[in-house]
Write a protein that binds this DNA or RNA. Structure first.
Lengths: 287, 287
DNA sequence: CCTCGTGATACTCCACGGGTATCAGCGCGC
DNA sequence: GCGCGCTGATACCCGTGGAGTATCACGAGG
């Protein structure tokens, strides 16, 4: 009875995401039969049924959903081990900061200025990503520190430092009647019949049910708003939405959003420590 | 160029801990040559030298130390994936609480009483371990929640809830002159010539340099104190040291120790949530 | 000098991961 | 109704590579 190998976890993640043996095998660059065998073998080894094989596709069981989540964490940890080992062998490299494209733009600007003009400037490389990708990039060692937003982002398992708190605004097509309002409430915004709220993928890649369009990238969503097909509620400082066709209206009762600095706990790099210190001292707006 | 497999990480951890190919291979249940090859292959794949091979044994390079730490985290994450998947398939099982044997005994008693007499009692299984093992047991999914002590224990990556704060006492052999004192200071305690402070293994398994004896378990340390070979400074509530040959003297300027409840973030089990709520409400002494 | 103990090398072998071909159940269309 | 197409499962073969045994190369110590 061997142990579980990362290969098996990769296989399982692939099929759990695709829910289709053929496509998953394709993505993995192997044939379908070995994949079938590997998954059966994994199920047998765990003593747990992970998939409900139905004619017409595959569905995850409840333990399967658990394994999907845990396997992602485990694979990220393996990637992190490889990355951090290579980084330890390399010369002094810049600190990698990751943030959602377009979010907290001014804060980011101030933050980089502060770090660049500190007595001992830390070289910083900025990596922009899509919504929800930051946690994975931090976990797998691609990035050292992230600018994230509570309660939107998944902060589980990270050390964080709060930076600023802000309200949220609704982004509407300029042509829409609600765009003329000085302020709105969540109730008004949540059920506009002709502007259903867009649906983002969950952590497991599936979409919640609902009338709105499915989106995965900010640029596509921005275009949908400009086209008058949807609206959204986001922190006031987001700058990815300043098209001429967009109007921002404050939503008075939306939950406040906290911009936070997040990093992998246990990271004792002096560059990171210095970065966090500089940023919190110069950027934070005391509560 | 294949990916890194957990087998390779297990091999590396074994040799990094043993620093000896023969013993490591033995522990892994394989012969020595395959282990040599596997490690070479891993080094080649990472493009990093992990070990300094000297005639007369092996030493870790700096990247090797990084990989040892990261590989342990990754292997724990893989174990956790397996455990949690199996648990998800099993019937309602008790919550596993882990704590250092002998630490915070009264608090543990109150805590279990409170949970047992709550309106919806959560079945709790208590697991006792040695110093420093809690983090690993939480990370690899063996335990769901731990009673730990800041700043002693490694809380990196866990969600925590503070329970109580307390001072520390020095545990001395009853026969020693210092045992008669009503209180002591850290400076007095730290350099008692005939009672060098015992050395605990670091996270990587190695021991710091110094004159004191190397210890790994509490029971052995307790005996060493009773024999008049060492002393130690611990939280006042620890109860593993109440031998007749022991005397506890408060150390007035020792840093305070906070007893905390810790658990893996992102655990959405209702049993855990209810447990944490009950415990914090009934046990916590407000600061 | 020989011996012992280290890790590396040279081979042999076979288990297992992967490939191709094919099967088996179900939905669906003509 | 019957065939076709799509699913995942099965059967079988093959080659890679992981693991074993035997041995080497090198240094330390007596």
């Amino acid at each position: 009875m061997h142990d579980v190998e990362t290969r098996e976890l990769r296989y399982f993640v692939a099929i759990a995401e695709e829910l289709h043996f053929g496509r998953a095998a394709d993505r993995l660059g192997i044939a379908q039969p070995p994949l079938s065998r590997a998954i059966r073998q994994l199920e047998h080894r765990l003593g747990v049924q992970l998939l409900d094989r139905d004619r017409r596709g595959v569905a995850l069981t409840e333990p399967g959903r658990v394994l999907l989540h845990e396997a992602r964490l485990a694979l990220d940890a393996v990637s992190a081990a490889v990355r951090r080992t290579r980084q330890a062998a390399a010369e002094r490299r810049p600190l990698v900061l990751v943030t959602k494209a377009g979010a907290s733009h001014e804060l980011l600007q101030r933050l980089l200025d502060a770090v660049g003009s500190a007595p001992d400037p830390v070289p910083v490389e900025v990596l922009l990503c899509e919504v929800g990708e930051q946690a994975g990039l931090l976990r797998d060692g691609t990035a050292d520190v992230a600018v994230m937003h509570r309660p939107y982002d998944d902060l589980a398992g990270f050390d964080t430092e709060d930076l600023v708190v802000e309200g949220q605004v609704a982004i509407l097509p300029a042509a829409h009647p609600l765009a003329a309002r000085a302020e709105l409430t969540l109730a008004e915004v949540q059920h506009v019949p002709d502007l259903p709220i867009a649906r983002w993928p969950r952590l497991d890649g599936s979409y919640p049910d609902g009338p709105g369009p499915e989106v995965r990238t900010q640029s596509k969503l921005a275009q949908l708003v400009a086209l008058g097909r949807t609206l959204l509620v986001i922190p006031a400082s987001s700058r990815a939405w300043q098209w001429p066709e967009h109007v921002a209206v404050p939503v008075v009762d939306a939950p406040e959003v906290t911009t936070v600095l997040a990093w992998r706990p246990g990271n004792r790099s002096p560059a990171l420590a210095s970065f966090v210190r500089t940023v919190t001292e110069s950027v934070r707006i005391p509560g």
